[in-house]
Write a protein that binds this DNA or RNA. Structure first.
Length: 871
RNA sequence: GCCCGGAUGAUGAAACUGGUAGACAUACCGGACUUAAAAUCCGGAGCCGCAAGGCAUACGGGUUCGACUCCCGUUCCGGGCACCA
């Protein structure tokens, strides 16, 4: 055995052994218990970042641990390969998106392999491959036929200078990122997936996901946002024609307090009012300025303008003025809201700003209503009682809603309605690097899905990317086609699909990535039975990706693939890892844009406590501003490349550091210190095993009756095995598993083990330690385990077993508290009864000293923990 | 703005079901080994205090024999907000 630990030497050796034994290969063996361990696949942006290393190390720890429990493990990997960055790279560096993407995949795959992840690479695929996306197109045509995909107008960000649609990310402070032009909202026809048809099932399904974090289920629940309210109509007359303006409210009990109704700027009534009124037209134009992201809309100053039109109150028939409001969204509900200034905080502020009437229609016990200042009880339905509401006076919230809904029903002007906040999913993108939408537009036949035999609709790889408009829309050779129905010339759809579509079903395809003539085959029935066993990914995906993937499971199930059972819920257990965050550095340009600098380009200055205080750019020696901690990302340019870390210290150190620095759920602040410590621990582990092996290995048969110090060490060993097993399995908290092994090694080194029984215990301890650490640092432990047990293979070994007999203990130490404050310890037999513990506590040295002659009022005994004496 | 989290020594953190706050590390300080350095080993340390003891888990209240943990309120930081992935 080599005396010194050399990662450069042992890591390739360990990886060669795994390759030779096909240790990472998942076998399609329906008779064996399976463990499908899936980490969210990466976007091939160029290089791995720290978040990937963290994510895939967690996945690998769980995969390797479960192999040690005897399960047939599938840990696949692929590439979420469509997306905007490839087009941006094309624009910046004149490289084709496809070439750029495949080059990145090649590099990142090497990085992943160098980290020693036990990935079954035979199942690898990239979503930009036609063999993958053709089945997405095939599914699209089926969903289109079922009406689960349909076309309607949707709002996008329009850059009037570059004449192109921008993603929300490309809109900075309301302006286009490249042109700097003020962005406008524009309505264009798009395809939508009817996720709202599954709203109820998506909501109910959350109840059946005990393996998901409560936090994520709650976020999804609120996102779906089921609310029971009242849909109601305000009659109006326009140009002699009678019509109804519909709105939705969860506060029908305040209907008698409506003093105006507001519609969105895009609402037909607003547009009508603008025809003869230049001021309204100008206001609507103003509302079009800026992007459509909800965060922007919600923080914009609330503005409005009267249309000059009135609608009729459905109950009283009184005229109610109609306003246009920039805070009313066409895409939500009906695009119109009833405003009750007295009982809605936003309406209150709006009414005060524009001098609109405020009419109180509910009250709460002993509270005084004042027009001057908003108070929380105004909107508190739990205490509300109707007043000034005619026949509804005296009713509480529930009763008033029921009564008013019933009256509206009689008038055919509304009734109770269940509403969801969830909106249908717009899947059209006016971009090149995505999956082509398989539709042909025919003047005669309308939107015709591409027939199966013409699939896939191939995305051309030779394109010119200009940053203005969609490249496909400039390629007649792509869009000129004939209608499959009537044979007339027709135009192919040039939009591509949202890249979230690819990531909504990839986990199913890993079961059968080589399937040529169908989307999936029966291997799904084995690997995806009851869903993926463990899914691991960043908390930032808590809503969108995870909701879409759940939706797709149900969609594909309902489309129905013969002989294949798709689970209702795709991911049985979910681990949402925290983000890797790091400080971000920037300079502001004169026009207020922030330019972000990578830490690698900077010289950092810290104070005497090691805290970051300033940074200068190496290139020009001038200072840059130190921003806050941000998620490591391209947009903040604050990513740290793990490659240098891997090269200098090796994969095991990188893995150990990541697992030890913080628990998986928590965000991890990146720092270089600590890496050195992880490396030091591995060197120490190697040294300890070397010291033992160089004296000659022995059998790990430990005698039943050991001297006390050895008995203590052996108890510690088996306590550690219990704890580490629990940390891997139930708690999924790897930092404490590592800490427990470190503690064990500290105890090991303090114990004299030079007798025969000591050597056997040393052997047992070191074998167990290497196996316990194997999931986290597999390379070093693969090699060390074979040194301890020649011919043995850690990768196919079982996790160490706990010897219950070793855990037994005769006497234990309890804590003595007086009035809840720590006053000392005392010994008591492990199986002592309550009364005996009490007596021992009172008789203890610590109690006599602390109590003196004070009278004992009460004694609280917590077996195995403490005694609290109250005086 | 709305929804969801988080805050514990100089630093990363631990305390799992309300029961010894700070395990395990990092950085630091002191010592040993060395011609010297690195590596390694030993020891120290939350804060105040000579000590007894007191004070400490973002802040302010509450419940309890006992609160980092539960409840109410506040501040700050992070994630998501439907076209970043």
């Amino acid at each position: 055995m080599q005396e010194k630990y050399s990662h450069a030497d042992i890591e390739p050796r360990a990886q060669a052994i795994w390759r030779q034994n096909a240790a990472d290969y998942a076998i399609d063996a329906p008779d064996r218990p399976k463990y499908y361990c899936l980490s969210m696949f990466p976007y091939p942006s160029g290089k791995l970042h720290m978040g990937h290393v963290r994510n895939y190390t967690i996945g690998d720890v769980l995969a390797r641990f479960n192999r040690m429990l005897g399960k047939n493990v599938l840990q696949p990997m692929g590439w979420d390969a469509f997306g905007m960055p490839a087009e941006n790279a094309a624009l910046a560096n004149q490289v084709a998106p496809a070439a750029w993407t495949y080059q990145n995949i090649g590099y990142m795959k090497k990085q992943l392999q160098s980290l020693g992840f036990s990935i079954d690479w035979t199942r690898e695929f990239a979503t930009c491959a036609p063999e993958y996306y053709r089945w997405e197109q095939w599914l699209f045509t089926r969903l289109f036929a079922k009406g689960l995909i349909y076309k309607k107008l949707g709002t996008v960000n329009w850059d009037p200078v570059d004449e192109t649609v921008l993603a929300n990310e490309q809109v900075i402070d309301g302006r286009g990122w490249r042109s700097g032009a003020v962005v406008e909202k524009r309505e264009i026809p798009m395809y939508y997936m009817k996720i709202t048809a599954y709203a109820e099932e998506l909501l109910q399904g959350l109840e059946e996901l005990p393996g998901w974090p409560e936090q994520v289920r709650l976020m999804q629940k609120n996102w779906i946002g089921k609310s029971v309210g009242v849909r109601l109509a305000f009659p109006y007359e326009l140009d002699g024609r009678k019509d109804l303006l519909w709105a939705f409210t969860t506060r029908a009990d305040t209907l008698m307090g409506v003093t105006f109704v507001a519609v969105a700027a895009e609402h037909p009534l607003a547009l009508h009012a603008a025809k003869n009124n230049p001021a309204i037209a100008a206001f609507i134009e103003e509302c079009r300025q800026g992007g459509f992201a909800e965060a922007d809309l919600a923080t914009v100053e609330k503005k409005g303008m009267p249309t000059g039109l009135c609608v009729q109150h459905p109950i009283t028939n009184e005229p109610v003025p109609l306003w246009v409001g920039n805070y009313v969204l066409m895409g939500y509900g009906e695009g119109a809201v009833m405003a009750v200034p007295a009982h809605d905080e936003r309406d209150f502020a709006f009414a005060k700003k524009y001098g609109l009437p405020i009419r109180q229609v509910i009250t709460a016990a002993n509270e005084t209503f004042s027009l001057d200042e908003w108070q929380d009880w105004y909107a508190d339905k739990s205490r509300a009682v109707c007043i000034n509401s005619g026949k509804y006076d005296g009713l509480n919230y529930e009763a008033a809603v029921e009564e008013i809904a019933a009256d509206l029903q009689k008038l055919s002007l509304g009734g109770k309605k269940t509403q969801f906040r969830l909106r249908d999913w717009g899947i059209s993108r006016q971009r090149y690097w995505g999956c082509p939408i398989p539709i042909i537009h025919c003047a005669q036949c309308g939107d015709v899905p591409v027939p199966d035999e013409q699939l896939p609709v191939l995305l051309p790889e030779q394109v010119e990317i200009t940053g203005a408009g969609s490249p496909l829309a400039r390629m007649p050779e792509f869009y000129e086609t004939i209608c499959p129905k009537c044979g007339q010339s027709a135009r192919r759809e040039t939009d591509t699909l949202d890249t979230f579509v690819e990531s909504s079903w990839y986990f199913l395809r890993y079961a059968c990535p080589d399937k040529q003539d169908a989307m999936l085959d029966e291997r799904v029935n084995y690997w995806c039975r009851d869903g993926v066993d463990q899914y691991i990914g960043g908390i930032e995906h808590a809503i969108l990706h995870l909701l879409y993937a759940r939706f797709f499971s149900k969609l594909i199930r309902d489309v129905g693939l013969p002989g294949i059972k798709i689970p209702d819920e795709p991911f049985r257990n979910l681990l949402t890892q925290g983000m890797v965050v790091a400080p971000a550095f920037f300079r502001k340009t004169p026009d207020g844009k922030k330019i972000w600098f990578n830490p690698a380009e900077l010289t950092l200055a810290t104070d005497e406590r090691g805290r970051l205080i300033a940074a200068t750019l190496k290139a020009d020696g001038q200072p840059v501003e130190v921003g806050g901690m941000e998620k490591m990302s391209k947009s903040h340019n604050n990513g740290v490349d793990p490659q240098a870390l891997i090269e200098q210290y090796g994969a095991d150190t990188a893995r150990l550091f990541m697992m030890f620095a913080a628990p998986p759920l928590q965000s991890l602040e990146w720092s270089d210190t600590g890496v050195e410590g992880a490396y030091r621990f591995l060197r120490r582990l190697w040294r300890i095993v070397y010291a033992h092996v160089s004296q000659g290995i022995v059998a790990a048969n430990v005698a039943a009756d050991l001297p006390a110090p050895l008995k203590d060490l052996r108890r510690k060993l088996h306590q550690t095995i219990t704890k580490v097993n629990d940390d891997y399995d139930r708690r999924q908290q790897f930092n404490t598993a590592v800490a427990a092994v470190m503690e064990l090694l500290n105890a090991y080194e303090k114990t004299v083990l030079d007798t025969a029984e000591g050597r056997a215990l040393a052997q047992e301890t070191l074998e167990s330690v290497t196996l316990m650490l194997f999931p986290i640092v597999p390379h070093i432990t693969q090699i060390l385990y074979a040194e301890l047990k020649p011919g043995a293979d850690a990768a196919s070994a079982s996790f160490p077993r706990v010897d219950e007999a070793a855990l037994a203990q005769e006497s234990i130490e309890l804590v003595l508290q007086i009035n809840g404050k720590l006053r000392g310890n005392f010994q008591v037999a492990a199986d002592a009864e309550r009364e005996a513990i009490k007596a021992a506590a009172l008789a203890s040295e610590a109690a006599r000293k602390a109590l003196g002659d004070k009278a004992v009022k009460k004694i609280v005994v917590v077996p195995k923990r403490l005694v609290n004496i109250v005086v």
